[in-house]
Amino acid sequence: MSDVQQLLTSLQFTDSAFPSGFYTMSHGLEAFSQARLVSRDGVQPLLADLLLHSVGPGDATALAAAHRAAVNDDVELVQEVDQRLFASKLNTELRTVSVRSGHQLIDLGAELIDHPLLAEYAERVRLRRTPGCQPVVTAVVYAANGVATREAVASDLFAFCASFVGAALRLRLTDHRHAQGILRETAGVIEQATEAALERDLADLGGCAPMADVMSAQHERAEARLFAS
């Protein structure tokens, strides 16, 4: 696959219009907003903290490890990464939304892309032999399209950021112009989280963001919710 085709693949699967289910998630932002713990000026710092201490050590690290395994046609290791990531998510809500999004992605990815390892992994997800967490599914889809590991990790982190900022818009914590400024300001953090994920061993998978976990637990029991997470 050419460099242009790889780029187009990254753009397609990170586009907000791609039916991955990301639009149903606030990635914890709704809970912070309900608790009045975040304001307009606090959206970017909160996003940066989540990237560096939660999403980067967790999802991005799993994506990098699963991508390397998929490139080497090691579906058993892909499954191990998937199971480890699922176990590292402390809250039911976080596990549920990751698997729900992952299943949507693997269903469509297996339909669009003819690749043996992708087909095998999709079958294991269908049979519930492995959870099918979104970052791991993303890794397999990108590997099947020849997208390099670094680009795969960075693309998925950007998709997370775009979804997070989209949630901020719907929660009226920002406007469209300010949202673009947040994404621009966060580019360096995405790069930092990407490089750290690439260097991290699978044994070190898992973030530490206690307040985010508390907010997720509260969100599970909220009387009114706009987002699934």
Score class of each variant (00 low, 15 high):
residue 197 A to L: 07
residue 115 H to A: 13
residue 221 R to K: 13
residue 89 K to D: 03
residue 84 R to M: 12
residue 220 E to I: 05
residue 202 L to Q: 02
residue 26 S to V: 00
residue 58 G to K: 06
residue 193 A to G: 02
residue 78 V to C: 08
residue 20 S to F: 00
residue 14 T to D: 01
residue 154 A to M: 11
residue 90 L to K: 15
residue 133 C to P: 10
residue 32 F to L: 10
residue 174 T to F: 12
residue 194 T to C: 00
residue 97 V to D: 04
residue 34 Q to N: 13
residue 79 Q to S: 15
residue 65 A to G: 00
residue 219 H to L: 01
residue 14 T to S: 02
residue 24 T to G: 07
residue 160 F to Q: 00
residue 102 G to N: 11
residue 71 V to F: 11
residue 138 T to A: 06
residue 114 D to M: 07
residue 2 S to L: 10
residue 158 F to S: 06
residue 36 R to D: 10
residue 162 A to P: 03
residue 179 A to P: 12
residue 118 L to K: 11
residue 73 D to H: 15
residue 149 T to V: 15
residue 179 A to D: 07
residue 46 L to S: 03
residue 55 V to N: 03
residue 10 S to W: 06
residue 111 E to S: 13
residue 195 E to T: 04
residue 144 A to Y: 06
residue 150 R to N: 00
residue 127 L to R: 03
residue 5 Q to E: 13
residue 74 D to I: 08
residue 191 E to I: 11
residue 199 E to D: 08
residue 114 D to T: 15
residue 43 V to W: 12
residue 102 G to Q: 06
residue 98 S to M: 02
residue 52 L to K: 14
residue 178 H to P: 04
residue 30 E to D: 04
residue 66 A to L: 11
residue 225 R to D: 12
residue 171 L to E: 12
residue 53 H to E: 02
residue 3 D to G: 09
residue 119 A to K: 15
residue 88 S to Q: 08
residue 77 L to N: 06
residue 122 A to M: 03
residue 134 Q to P: 00
residue 205 L to C: 03
residue 62 A to W: 04
residue 117 L to D: 04
residue 101 S to K: 00
residue 193 A to M: 05
residue 160 F to P: 01
residue 1 M to Q: 04
residue 214 V to M: 08
residue 106 I to S: 06
residue 35 A to L: 13
residue 57 P to Y: 08
residue 122 A to I: 01
residue 13 F to D: 04
residue 66 A to N: 12
residue 23 Y to G: 09
residue 209 A to R: 14
residue 60 A to V: 08
residue 194 T to P: 01
residue 6 Q to W: 11
residue 100 R to W: 10
residue 58 G to Q: 04
residue 157 L to A: 05
residue 160 F to T: 02
residue 187 A to Y: 15
residue 12 Q to P: 03
residue 219 H to C: 09
residue 222 A to E: 09
